[in-house]
Amino acid sequence: MQFWALIVDSFRESVDRKIFWVLVGLTLLITLVMLSVGFAGEEVTLFFGMWSTETDRFNPLSDIGRANLVGFVVYLLASTMMGWIGVTLMIIATAGAFPAFSERGALDVVLAKPINRARLFLYKYFATMVFVVLQGTLFFVLTFLVMWLRWGVWAPGYLLSIVFLVLLFSYLYCVSVLVAVKTQSAVAAILLTLFAWVLFALIHQAPSVFETFPDLKKRRTVYVAVRVASWIPPKTGDFPYLAARWSQAGTSIDALPYFDMDTATELERTQIERARQVEEQELAKNQFYSIGSSLLFEIVVVLLAMWTFARKDY
């Protein structure tokens, strides 16, 4: 009952924010644009059929065509619009929730309720994610429906992206909450979270420097230290990979049959080789490691924030 009360409260707080509706608008716009494009056999129509052309690369009836279509939606729309712009807006929108909740005078009544502080903190933490769950569900369900009903592409695994989006958000949100309970400032929470996001990406990319300059690997301690450090931060960059993997979206290797190796030009050959490398790197990723290590990071940060929250005077 107490958790439900906090969820309902978070829902009301969410819909009271302008950014919530900006995101809803963005999702509707994307849905509309997707609706305006049609794929039927080899025919592609734009602007609700006003303009049409033919290509075999996006034929929803062929395996490769559907994979390409889903890949287009996952990589271009979902990961750019939701994974980048969406998550940034959501961080901004939710950063004020904890400072407002734990403001002196606002928290007094709540703390005087029969609920301990640790539990109250966790309930509120999860309740705030209602915002993201709603946005994610709206976006992925609508785009899923367009793919299915308008394009004839059935990709139920695509709906799992809702979970991956919430996970991605939560890896960053824990940082936001920690900053918020330490500083009581929404602005500090936003700035430091965005900074942490960039930092995570950099740390995650660091080991690839050794691949580019293999000589550096001779410095054993530095190399090991960098590799170990790259395990710690949450894997925020894996969202498109996880979403694509589960939606069975087209990947680079799927494009291979388009090239006839015998007649391929030199340029095409290098392109194919690059595609193969990227593909191998992606496949080498382990989703359990990605999610598990990220959640471990999140748990530690949440416990730290909870401890701070529980020991303060209000």
Binding site: D9, G105, A106
Partner: peptide, 15 residues
């Protein structure tokens, strides 16, 4: 026991 108490804080701020 807090379930049996009612509390009006000073300078309260309600959402």
């Amino acid at each position: 026991k807090l379930a049996g108490t009612g509390y009006l804080p000073e300078d309260h701020r309600f959402p």
